[in-house]
Each structure stands twice: as structure tokens, then as C-alpha cells.
């Protein structure tokens, strides 16, 4: 994937690709597969020697992936519309409730201005739409150096950290 930021760094040679498919035959490694494929063929995929990931859209049921979290190096959330905030909660629950520790990548129609909040909800990689947006994302992603709430990166809300 292009225009990728991962753990704060620009990644030029990322091997992962979205892959549309309806069956589990002949899949290339480093394919990000739809939730549907994991639902239907998850156990086969988990036993494969090739690395596979998943991608999730807003209307998908990401909990279908739960049996395979240990096999998934990467889960990508594909934004259909940047103003749809469900993926923020999906990612947060994946980290908080289901203790997923692999990569969570934002792809699709999100804005560089959302990267700060996305990071705080558990996203660690961002596949931006353009080179420009990637540069903007890099420059604004850590804009806020203080925050009130706890989140996936900071275990304690400000009121537990505040020194008077």
C-alpha cells in the first residue's frame, strides 16, 4: 500500500494488498481479505503458511474475526465515509475488550485531521489517500500533547494524572 504511515514512520515497501475474493483458493500471501472470507474459511486460512489479514467496513460484523485474532497480523478498517464514526468504536473495542495486539490500519476515506483521534482509539497505521494528505497527517497527528480521557494509548484519564 502507498502513502502509509505506520507507528509514526513512512513505510515505502508495504506488502499488504486488499484482495476481493469469494473463496479461499489461490489466495496470495499478505492479502487483506473481507470479513466474509474469514467467516466462511477462517480455519483454513488460519492453518495456511501464508500471512493473511482482514479488512472491515462499517456495515461488517467485525466480531466474526474474533476466533482468529491470534492469526491476524493486521486488521484494516476501511472508511466508506469519513463522517461515519463506527470504526472508532470497533477499533477501541478490539483493543480494550478483545485485547487485539496486532496492527490496526485505517484505509479508505478518512481525513488526516482524524488521525489523532484514530490513534487514540487503537489505530497504529494509516494508509492516506494522497502523498499530501500523508504529509499533513504526519504533521498534525500528535498535535495535542494533553487530553482529558483515558484511551488505548494512555491508561489513565487526566484526573488521575493531574498534579496541582
Amino acid at each position: 500500500m502507498q502513502h502509509l504511515i505506520k507507528d509514526g514512520q513512512i513505510i515505502k515497501d508495504d506488502p499488504w494488498q486488499l484482495f476481493e475474493s469469494t473463496d479461499a483458493q489461490g489466495l496470495p500471501g499478505n492479502a487483506l481479505l473481507p470479513v466474509r472470507i474469514w467467516t466462511d474459511f477462517g480455519h483454513e486460512l488460519a492453518e495456511s503458511s501464508l500471512p493473511f489479514g482482514a479488512y472491515v467496513c462499517e456495515d461488517d460484523d467485525y466480531t466474526e474475526l474474533l476466533p482468529f485474532l491470534a492469526n491476524l497480523q493486521i486488521i484494516a478498517f476501511k472508511f466508506g465515509k469519513f463522517a461515519d464514526g463506527r470504526l472508532f468504536t470497533f477499533a477501541r473495542l478490539l483493543r480494550m475488550q478483545y485485547k487485539y495486539e496486532g496492527e490496526i490500519r485505517a484505509i479508505g476515506d478518512f481525513l488526516p485531521d482524524q488521525v489523532n483521534f484514530l490513534q487514540r482509539c487503537g489505530f497504529t497505521a494509516f494508509c492516506c489517500r494522497t502523498e499530501n494528505e500523508m504529509q499533513t497527517a504526519l504533521s498534525v497527528k500528535d498535535h495535542f500533547t494533553e487530553q482529558y480521557q483515558s484511551d488505548t494509548r494512555l491508561a489513565e484519564p487526566l484526573f488521575r494524572r493531574r498534579t496541582v
Binding site: 461515519d84 464514526g85 468504536t89 482524524q114 489523532n116 487514540r120 482529558y148 484511551d151
Partner: peptide, 14 residues
């Protein structure tokens, strides 16, 4: 107010 200010998860509600 403090909890809801710039809450990262709830900035794009329905």
C-alpha cells in the same frame, strides 16, 4: 465537560 471535550471516540456520532 472535561470528559466530553475532544473525546476521541465520539467525534463522529450519527
Amino acid at each position: 465537560r472535561q470528559w466530553s471535550t475532544l473525546h476521541p471516540e465520539f467525534a463522529f456520532l450519527p
